[in-house]
């Protein structure tokens, strides 16, 4: 077990070193992030006519901080490793060589991906904090201690998301192009939990959304940072663990089926 873990840690570390060189390129992404947040600040400034208003229980500051945090996760966890690379490995036949290595392909990809966002996400977190504090002022009622509980939620959320996206990429065993399915998944997460909190939707829909991974990926962690409560934290952590287990099972299942199909039909 410890040897297993060591293997993936080494993969993780080498990707980390490799990506340090690209810090400049990562920082380029700040442009897109900055503008995205800027647009939302303007938008909410326009919609909140009176600074004292509450929309769906959120003050203007909370609403903007919420978007900045979800977008931070969105940008910080973005990578083509779990999407395009997996698809092209499978479609291009490269998978045959990667499969025969003494590691599990999907876990190898996850370790690699973790190495990527370990640099990206903190960089974006720093930017988000600086931008938030200077452009909208500090978050009302925020206690830094709560980060100890909400940061693990963010990390779990990113991982759950990665596992689901990986599942979609693994569909490439059967279909030529899995990208369109990624778009739809992304848009669900984006529209129903990233752009605004789900409280903004009608009640019945809210309940429905809470059953989907949307709840654990973006909404949950961001909500915890903006408006922390211990019960909510426990609830989100639990759901995330459930989704992680379910996602991993699904991932191994799809991968197993795909590999079997490869053995039967050839590359």
């Amino acid at each position: 077990m410890s040897r297993m873990l060591k293997k993936y840690t080494v993969i993780y570390k080498s990707v980390l070193i490799e990506n340090l060189q690209y810090m400049f390129n990562i920082a380029m992404g700040f442009i897109s992030y900055f503008i995205m947040c800027f647009v939302f600040i303007k938008l909410w400034n326009y919609i909140y006519a009176d600074p004292g208003d509450l929309i769906a229980g959120y003050t203007k500051e909370q609403m903007i901080w919420y978007v900045m945090i979800t977008e931070m996760v969105w940008f910080g966890a973005r990578s083509s490793t779990i999407t395009r690379q997996v698809s092209s490995d499978i479609r291009g036949g490269n998978i045959a060589y990667l499969m025969n290595k003494p590691y599990h392909y999907t876990l190898y990809i996850l370790a690699k991906y973790t190495g990527e966002w370990s640099i990206q996400l903190p960089m974006y977190a720093l930017l988000a904090t600086v931008m938030g504090v200077t452009m909208i002022g500090s978050l009302p009622g925020f206690r830094p201690v709560t980060l100890l509980a909400s940061v693990p939620c963010v990390i779990l959320g990113v991982t759950v998301n990665a596992v689901f996206k990986l599942c979609i990429s693994l569909l490439s065993f059967w279909i030529e192009d899995s990208a369109p399915f990624q778009w739809i998944y992304d848009k669900l997460i984006l529209v129903m939990g990233t752009l605004f909190p789900i409280e903004i939707f009608p009640g019945a829909l809210q309940f429905l959304f809470k059953l989907t991974p949307i709840y654990t990926v973006c909404y949950g962690p961001a909500k915890l940072i903006v408006d922390f409560s211990a019960e909510k934290c426990a609830e989100i952590l639990l759901t995330q663990l459930l989704y992680l287990c379910a996602g991993l099972l699904l991932m191994f299942f799809i991968y197993g089926k795909g590999v079997r199909k490869l053995y039967v039909n050839g590359g």
């Binding site: 070193i17 490799e18 340090l20 060189q21 810090m23 400049f24």
Partner: peptide
């Protein structure tokens, strides 16, 4: 050009 290892990577940034 890049010097070896983590330190080299950071330096080259």
């Amino acid at each position: 050009q890049k010097e070896k290892g983590m330190a080299g990577s950071i330096k080259s940034v």
